[in-house]
């Protein structure tokens, strides 16, 4: 007896096997996504177990676990976390603050847009990691040059997204507001700001990933502590398993931070459906 399963939109779902039918689309997604990661890990372990390449070139997953254990047995790792965290936090916070404020202004006042847009587009077009050496010359290899690099890399997605959010406000809503005699300030507060929140959050989400690149590159250019510096050192000493561990730390940090912004986006986007 064939039963037709309807999904949320009322469209008959393709018939799968019994166990597929029992899972919701969400569990199905999680199971499949995890399955691939597990498969890659297993293949990786098998390849290394065959001994095709020495561990110094390709360490096995269990070597990487060992490297993690070693890393977290010394207190240096916390100094690395602190250093990278500080660079990330300051750089990102500065980028968010400046990017949102400047984006709002540039989007709201067309003349400011005419004035700054070409310059911003020019800067946006430069691969900004290339500014690293310049920043080291100007600010030294301390915290400030690193924060500056993270800031420069992360500020543009926030700024450009925010200003385009303001510019794409529904003109009809603005007309309605003017009709009720609204002042510019009120329109800004009640329409422009909430209307551009989804754009701002989208910019922040991009900026998170970019900030991590900034942290890594900044530490490559010379640093005592930091996850990036740790990876760089390990690479120089052919501790390949530790390099892998560092990469994984970056990946997890990126995932976590993006998840936070995504969560915020969902909260503020409920009305978008």
């Amino acid at each position: 007896m064939a039963t037709i399963v309807l999904d949320e939109t009322g469209v008959p779902r393709r018939q799968g096997s019994a166990w597929q039918a029992q899972m919701g689309p969400r569990t199905e997604r999680i199971v499949l996504g995890t399955a691939f990661i597990v498969a890659v890990l297993v293949a990786w372990q098998v390849v290394t177990a065959l001994g095709i390449e020495p561990p110094i070139i390709l360490p096995s997953p269990s070597d990487v676990v060992g490297a993690f254990r070693e890393l977290f047995s010394s207190s240096d790792i916390w100094a690395d976390f602190a250093a990278s965290g500080e660079e990330l936090l300051y750089g990102f916070a500065l980028a968010a603050a400046v990017g949102i404020a400047a984006g709002l202004l540039i989007g709201w006042y067309p003349r400011l847009g005419y004035f700054f847009d070409p310059f911003i587009n020019l800067l946006y077009a430069i691969p900004r990691v290339a500014l690293g050496p310049l920043l080291v010359v100007w600010l030294g290899i301390g915290l400030s040059s690193k924060v500056a690099l993270v800031f420069l890399i992360a500020v543009f997605p926030v700024l450009v997204n925010t200003s385009s959010g303001i510019r794409s406000l529904d003109p009809h809503l603005l007309r309605v507001a003017r009709c009720f005699g609204a002042s510019d300030l009120k329109i800004f507060r009640t329409i422009a700001l909430p209307g551009s929140v989804p754009f701002i959050l989208g910019g922040l989400r991009l900026a998170v990933g970019q900030s991590l690149i900034g942290v890594f590159v900044a530490e490559l250019l010379g640093a005592q502590f930091g996850i990036g510096a740790m990876v760089e050192n390990a690479g120089e000493q052919f501790q390949t398993d530790t390099v892998f561990a560092g990469l994984l730390i970056f990946a997890v940090a990126g995932l976590l931070l993006t998840a936070i912004v995504r969560w915020l986006e969902r909260r503020f986007d409920a009305w978008r459906v």
Binding site: V176, F180, A182, T190, P194, G195
Partner: peptide
């Protein structure tokens, strides 16, 4: 004077109640 347009022009992020208060807020 108050104008009613062909398009509803409601704020999508506000619920119905707060859409109705919108005009009052704007005119303060």
């Amino acid at each position: 004077r108050a104008m009613v347009f062909q398009q509803p022009g409601l704020l999508p992020w506000r619920d119905v109640l707060h859409n109705v208060t919108f005009g009052l807020e704007m005119s303060g």
